[in-house]
Design a protein around this nucleic acid. Structure first.
Length: 271
DNA sequence: CTTTACGCCTGACGGC
DNA sequence: TGCCGTCAGGCGTAAA
């Protein structure tokens, strides 16, 4: 389920397939997502042209000129672009039908995702307005992390997963970036040097870029918007490798829990 | 203000 | 074979 690389992969797929197309129909089979899908979604979208697909954090922004459809995939969501006669599967909750006969179909078993509508500037939406910088933007660097961490006592892993600090660093990539930067995930965020934050910021960026280049990590069932399976091969160094030897120092990978989330680190090389 | 815990859901898996 | 507990990639919200 989607971390930022998966969402970015979905964004590119949807944009390539449907940018410039006009909405000719909306079907909501189950509006009980994280928030109810608005009842007026269909009239809002009717006959509007999809001008672009953007991404802010893990939110997809389907730009329709004077309004934006905000889509979040939650923990189990995926998007596919299918033919209109594609058979439905269970948990296919929302369809946007376009004028070329194709359908953008949201599938979300756990229904932690969202489909919303907002007029005006979507970045001013309550869900988006307090978000930190994009991890692939110039605004994100070690100086930013060090500044934001001043006086903070929480574990650095929870810190980098806080969307007000930096967006898009999910549970897998938080463990991976901390391992590459040799920083212990439980270390207090405010007690990490500027130099180590420089390294961490660099590794966050690198691990996300590498994953995007491979179309997302995909542990089990991520499906890109065209229906293709994402790369299984992205080499996770610590995630889900409890008990295995560290590829860097030979130490043993440990599993702990930080902020109620599974956390993996090497007891040998992360300090 | 910061930090921590809790749900929202379905499904897959392991142990018995 | 079935049942039951545990866990899962997110994240807003409430409580402390």
């Amino acid at each position: 389920m989607p971390e930022l690389p998966e969402v970015e992969t979905a964004r590119r797929g949807v944009a390539r397939a449907l940018r410039g197309r006009r909405v000719v129909g909306v079907v909501v089979r189950d509006r009980r997502l994280r928030w109810p899908v608005p009842r007026d979604l269909a009239p809002r979208l009717a006959e509007r042209t999809l001008e672009d697909v953007e991404r802010r954090a893990k939110y997809l922004l389907l730009r329709f000129g004077d309004g934006t459809c905000i889509v979040h995939l939650g923990m189990s969501g995926s998007l596919r672009v299918v033919a209109a006669d594609e058979p439905l599967r269970v948990h296919d909750h929302v369809d946007l039908a376009f004028d070329d006969g194709r359908v953008l179909r949201l599938h979300d078993p756990r229904r932690f995702g969202a489909v919303l509508w907002t007029g005006g500037d979507p970045l001013a939406h309550p869900l988006l307005r307090h978000l930190g910088p994009e991890p692939l933007s110039p605004a994100f660097d070690g100086a930013h992390l060090a500044r934001a961490a001043r006086g903070r006592t929480l574990a650095v892993k929870a810190f980098v997963m806080d969307a007000r600090v930096v967006v898009g660093v999910g549970n897998i990539y938080a463990s991976e970036a901390l391992h590459r930067a040799a920083v212990h995930p439980a270390r207090a965020a405010g007690r990490i040097s500027r130099a180590r934050y420089d390294a961490l910021a660099r590794h966050v960026r690198e691990v996300l870029e590498a994953a995007i280049a491979r179309g997302g990590t995909t542990l089990r069932d991520f499906v890109g918007s065209g229906g293709e399976l994402g790369e299984f091969a992205f080499d996770l160094e610590v995630y889900d490798r409890e008990g295995e030897p560290c590829i860097r120092c030979g130490g043993t990978i440990k599993r702990t829990v930080i902020g109620q989330r599974s956390t993996f680190h090497c007891g040998g090389c992360q300090r």
